[in-house]
């Protein structure tokens, strides 16, 4: 496999760092070198979180630079547009359709961007845009915390590593009693 860059973005508290940890582990389990780098700044919630994962034969820097991201995985709708400069032409974008209203919108003078504007920003770079209402899927499965597993399932469909490898890494990280729910969440995401 060629060098592959992933960028996970969203809002603090959405499980982004766990998801990116899993993808880095999947890269290693697939026999590749892998590095990751996360920016979470303040540990309290509500700010932008970004986490980079790079796979390759030999990975140097842990950050994926502007214009080099192959897979952008956004856990929140507007955050996908914030990182459009990072995309390689024709990159895959997977975005959860959940909206988390920033304070600048709820108490400031700013508007949450219209769906069409977000879409247009992404389309300036790629047509491979996949939307998923991961929160609804997770809630249907009975636990909103399954959002990141649903999103990982959706991502896995586009990445040439066997689903069994993904599930093996996920099962090493979740408590046994949540294993079935996570497996279901992964499968639902993967087939969405």
């Amino acid at each position: 496999m060629n060098d592959t860059n992933f960028l996970f973005v969203g809002v603090g508290g959405q499980g982004i760092l766990t998801a990116s940890d899993i993808v880095a582990e999947v890269g290693l389990a697939a026999g590749l070198d892998a590095k990751k780098s996360e920016i979470h700044g303040f540990s309290q919630r509500g700010g932008v979180v970004e986490s980079h994962v790079r796979w390759g034969q030999r990975v140097g820097a842990p950050v994926a630079e502007l214009g080099t991201v192959d897979f952008l995985v956004s856990f929140e709708l507007l955050e996908s547009a914030r990182f459009v400069e990072h995309l390689r032409p024709n990159a895959v974008v997977i975005t959860n359709t959940q909206r988390i209203i920033p304070m600048s919108v709820s108490s400031g003078g700013y508007a949450y961007p219209a769906d069409g504007d977000i879409e247009k920003a992404l389309r300036s770079r790629t047509d491979q845009i996949y939307r998923i209402d991961a929160l609804a899927v997770a809630q249907e499965l009975g636990n909103p915390r399954l959002v990141n597993t649903v999103v990982l399932g959706a991502l896995s469909w586009h990445v040439p590593v066997d689903a069994a490898v993904w599930l093996d890494v996920i099962s090493r990280r979740v408590p046994p009693r949540h294993l079935n729910a996570n497996r279901q969440a992964f499968d639902t995401g993967r087939s969405s």
Binding site: R45, G46, L66, E79, A81, P102, S104, P113, S124
Partner: peptide, 19 residues
Amino acid sequence: APPPLPPPLPLPGRSPVFC
């Protein structure tokens, strides 16, 4: 010089907030 990148969309900021 590297090839130019698409211009960023002006977006509302998202500062950390009291939980």
